[in-house]
Design a protein around this nucleic acid. Sequence first.
RNA 1: GGGUCUAUGGCUCAGCCAGGUAGAGCACCGGACUCUUAAUCCGGCUGUCGAGGGUUCGAAUCCCUCUAGACCCGCCA
Length: 546
Amino acid sequence: MDILFWARTCPKCYQSNTMEKTKIIGKGTWIDKLASELVEREQSLGRSLDLLRVESGLGASGIPHLGSLGDAVRAFGVKLALENLGYKSELIAYSDDLDGLRKVPEGLPESLNEHLGKPVSFIPDPFGCHDSYGVHMSSLLLDGLDNLGIKYRFERALNTYKSGILTDQIHTILVNSKKIGDKIADLVGQEKFQNDLPYFPVCSSCGKLYTAEVYDYLADEKKVKYRCKETTIGSETLHGCGHEGIADITKDLGKLVWKVEFAARWQAFDVRFEAYGKDIMDSVKVNDWVSDEILKFPHPHHVRYEMLLDKSGKKISKSSGNVVTSQAWLKYGTPKSILLLLYKRITGAREVGFENIPALMDEYNELEDVFFGKIKFENEAKSTKSKGLYEYVNLLNPPKEPNMHISYRLMVELCKIYQEDRVPRVTKKLIEYRAIKSLDSYIEKLITLAGNYADDFGEHEKIEIKLDNITKKAVKELAELLSGEKEPEDLQSSIYEISKKNDIPPKDFFRVLYQIILSANRGPKIGPFIMDIGRKKVSQTLGQYV
RNA sequence: GGGUCUAUGGCUCAGCCAGGUAGAGCACCGGACUCUUAAUCCGGCUGUCGAGGGUUCGAAUCCCUCUAGACCCGCCA
């Protein structure tokens, strides 16, 4: 067996060989790979690399959830990766607040029904705190981004259209509407735009836009002719007001339909990257074509992601009730846990719920250990990737020193047990377990988060408690001992004595006590625990069972 | 009709997108902690990685085919 044979077969050698060949891009994550693809594409297109702008579209028609947030968070990640590769970049967060309201989201007042079909920016805020429905919804999303430390330039459809930024694109698209209509039918099988023009003016009479059907474009005057008529959206029928009018695309308010609108925006804002969910795949397909062939602006680089699903496998939807908002998430988890969720992976469908929080909280600590070299992987590429992920979760500004690590799951367990005076009691236990040395504001925050989680999602096993007479007698003895004036010296032993004296196996007696005190079959060491809660109080509780 | 995702231990899932010894938690079994519970620690068990083919020195991972389930689109935005 010669040297060459080993060089060919020894797995280690092949490992190191391939390792040399694998060039690590940026921080080694999918975000870096994406950014590098983007740069390569721009180079081959021969476009200027002075500013690589990325965009995220924010829906303003429903309560923003983690999915909506994810689009922007990931776009921001790509911006960071581009900067890390040495390019200038900017994130535009674009609110689609000229979209019409199509459906009243679950949980919002029925009174919104009368506004169906109107731009969300012209619908009063049902919560009464913002200028309009649309502003309210986009504020929630922006608030979510702010909480995570995401920086962006905010643009809204209302201003964009009002200020005429898209006028040239609208004109070009309307002039080519026949060609576009045919292409839409060809690409995605929707025939509607072979007749209608892909533009909705806001009806000057009733203020709705989805009922305004455009049937002609007067290219010389830049005006569309429309009639406001009945239309169906889903199972709902929207009644138009019957108004026939002419709208000036340079002055009157209106918007392009989605199938062509992105393209217009991409060109107007010079967007080079935009991610999209698979639900709007068809729209993106059409928009890419319009951008390339009609507007002659090479479409941005894309990445498609799956919808975030709720735990029953349904798409998390803005308009139905099952929303997981970032605001609610932050009641239980840190902003970093959200960033980790979103930066970990972009491919693959995922069922996302609050149940993921404990794992993510603990995983972050693990990543931190990898980053600071406390955990090492054999595979260097994996190690690099984990460190990279950690950096992205910290928005490429990682802390200088690792934080204190406490298992979130452990804290949840402790919080389930200590429901009153939680912070000091949980702290005491954590110190006993040597998880921490002392309480600080960071740990206090974690206990609060874990406590909220324990309160809202901790299963409280309901146990039917049956006591025979002997056990009752023993419980009574213990209750009396606890209610006495004198502090029991060694409660743990006393309890043990009581059970022995009454011929109850200690195991059973302890279980009964946990059932009564905690509604659980198990619990912490009972003697100190009873002292923690307060012996008089426990005595009272026990008294109720004898 | 078009498209996508998912399938990994008893359970829940990670790992897959940049191929390199199949992992975690829970559950279970044994042990340590002066008698009991929990916690903690140590050790152990559990797998034809949905099926079949291909590429490769090497595949859970990449490619193709198939099966099952789910979702998205086929109104509209």
